[in-house]
Amino acid sequence: MPNLPPSAPSAAPRNEYTVDELARVTDTTVRNVRAYQDRGLLAPPEKRGRVGVYDDTHVSRLKLINHLLARGYTLANIQDLIKAVDEGHDLRSILGLETAIGGRWSRERPRKYSLIELLQMFGDKASPSALTKAVELGLLERKGLSFVSGNPTALAAGATMAKEGIPLADLLDAVGIARPHFNAVAKALVDLVVHQLDRYEADALPPPADVPALADAIWRLRPLASVLVESEMNRALEEASGDYLGDRVAAIMEKKLARQAEGPDAAESRTAEKRVATKKGKTKP
């Protein structure tokens, strides 16, 4: 009997799902599956009679959609990304560019605080109105009975300033007043950083070959923008402090000169008035 050639290896079995099973496996709903199909985000199932059969490629696509939605993308954004992938872009490179532009600029890790911890930090200054204001400004975020700060260092600095006697309400008002100016500065600097994208069409992604280099350039520019902000802030603080000190010294000098112009009799009269006031205060029942 002649030797038969070895049979070709069988294809790996694929998992198959009904629409209900697909929704359950991917932690979504049947309604979402239908909606994604209607928008072209998800390929239609294989039809077997009246039953639609999905497979692992649908699972992968749905998990990607869920991941992108969790990162803040809209369905329109996701549609553009998937179209870009179909046109030859590497999705990891696109997400890398998105992270370089929109990722957190601070390396601080958010920290959760209980109400007791905040009271220990701020003492009696942590009033309900102050906590509400801090939440409105985004300095704290409510998480059930706890609070989360995205910048624990700034929170600790505020607590120290409050303990030094600065009213917490005034400190929060100062943050609210300064924020629009910081937002304007931040927008100007972000515009400089992402200016690298201006050479491309506004409604199109850069060519696939350019995306990794662009992301790398933006990562290098980001810390330089932060250095510029810190440098300018220090300069402004020095000028403001100098102006305040100069105004304060000038006011003291003006007062001293005014007293000298009044002559010694006026000075003695004020001294006598102070002595009488002090004596009355000591003998007050």
Rank of each mutant, 00 (worst) to 15 (best):
N32L: 05
R235C: 05
L257D: 12
A204N: 02
N3Q: 11
S149C: 06
K280S: 06
E232Q: 11
A272K: 13
V33G: 08
E21W: 03
E98D: 14
G49C: 01
P6L: 08
S269R: 15
R220H: 14
E46W: 00
P44R: 13
N77R: 06
L91A: 09
A35S: 15
R235S: 07
I78G: 08
A130Q: 06
W105R: 13
G281K: 14
E141V: 07
M161F: 09
T57V: 11
V193S: 14
E232W: 12
G263T: 11
G165Y: 05
L168A: 05
R39E: 10
T74Q: 15
R111S: 09
L245D: 03
V30G: 04
L155K: 04
S106A: 10
L257C: 03
T278F: 15
E87P: 00
K280V: 03
V229Q: 07
L192F: 09
P208C: 02
V59R: 10
K284V: 01
A202E: 09
V190E: 15
M253E: 14
V53T: 03
I94M: 09
Q120M: 02
R111Q: 15
L119P: 00
K280M: 12
L228A: 11
K47G: 02
R111H: 07
L171W: 11
P264S: 08
Y17I: 05
A188H: 12
A178W: 11
R109D: 13
L119F: 00
E230K: 13
A272G: 02
I166R: 05
G40K: 07
V193R: 15
D20I: 03
L237C: 01
A159D: 02
